[in-house]
Design a protein around this nucleic acid. Sequence first.
RNA 1: GUGGGAGUAGCUCAACCGGCAGAGCACCGGACUGUGGCUCCGGACGUUGCGGGUUCGAUUCCCGUCUCCCACCCCA
Length: 429
Amino acid sequence: METIKAVKGTRDLLPPETERWNLVESVTREVFRTYNFQEIRTPIFEKTELFARGVGADTDIVAKEMYTWEDQSRGGDNVAAGRQSLTLRPENTAGVVRAYIEHRLWERGLNKFYYIGPQFRRERPQKGRYRQFFQIGAEVIGPPPSGSESPARDAELLELLASLLDRLGIQQWRLELNSIGCPADRARYDQVLRQALQPVAANLCADCQRRAQTNPLRVFDCKVPADQAIIETLPRISQFLDEPCRKHFDEVREILASVGVPYTLNDRLVRGLDYYTRTAFEFTHGALGAQNAILGGGRYDGLSEALGGPQAPGIGFAIGEDRLVMSLGQSAATDGAKLDVYIAPLGTGMNKEAARLARELRRHNLVVEVGEESFRLKKSLETASKQGARYALIAGENELSTGVFALKKLASGEQRSVSRDRLLAEIQG
RNA sequence: GUGGGAGUAGCUCAACCGGCAGAGCACCGGACUGUGGCUCCGGACGUUGCGGGUUCGAUUCCCGUCUCCCACCCCA
């Protein structure tokens, strides 16, 4: 029979790799906690319309990378009977903002959420890119007087990220920062940019010629060397920021400077959608191949309204957890659970005694593995040392009758006879 | 979706010009009946990704297909 394999672009995370994921997640949760962020969990599937509106119907994500299906509804499922289109979430911001609106969370003032979970995009897999991938993200959102609109929030989020990467031991991260202004700025800029592109577009690569028509901002993403000289001459969004946007950006930068978070201005860093505003950023890492962006984020002051909610400025980011774990390399030496004791039952009926011993020891938080009474002692000891156990506890018929157990320290080979009631103290000491 | 590379034992990889599919590691057993690491000996290991074609004969050549890797598009 043909065996079933994981579907394209998905993968199993096996030990010991899962230890590294757990390390990343526990450090992350701890960092979020100290910045007073709280976890939010939204469904992994939503109505397709949410992403069409929340991510943008014209984006590649929505146009061709979503796992979407028609779900049969019998009525009462929050829709009339009939079919509704559902989609596995390709990102988590839209879901969070949907929940924000649905539960009227603006009544709580400023919300600082984080999430950790799987996302789904139907892309061609490659290094650091999977069809089920994991993101760690955060969203700061609230009604205008709550402070969510403040440049202090942008700076706090960026400083949090710098701390997180530092604490994970990621050495060569680089923060690239830009402001893309407000929609009005971008509308003016878009016009100017299109005009500037018109005379030179013919000299650019085919992709750029297409972008010049469809989404001029994307020209700045071009990596073709020959195009760079021309691109360098194009006007930049930074020249079109209105006074409030300029002040906002200056303030973000001043706070970053005062807390000592290094950054690089990159006025080619852009975002395509209308509700993206002001601060845009990416953290990159050298050792990730073409997928060098380890996380990205920015301000989305217009998103809530785009989804039919009240005015609610927000800023957020999403970390590609797969890439984050990858860039950890061997720097994070994670030792798996070290065995404290391997119990070697020896002889018929000794499984019962071994189970009693294991239960007692585990009750005191010792990490215990138990062999099998049919194993030869040689095999049990071999397994014990292979698994890195500190002690082997031999539970044979002799021990059971005398009440004195053989406790062997595997590193030194030293073996002692220990009475049953002193076992715990001996192992813990 | 597009382009390139690769799929052989659990893992890492060999196998000349088309001629009996191999090694190291890991696994299991023995030397050694209740004492691990070292050593020695032995064992199991495979529809060579899958399907078709050429051939007396295909891991090898051809076609298709699937998966992975790298890159493009795009993005985290």
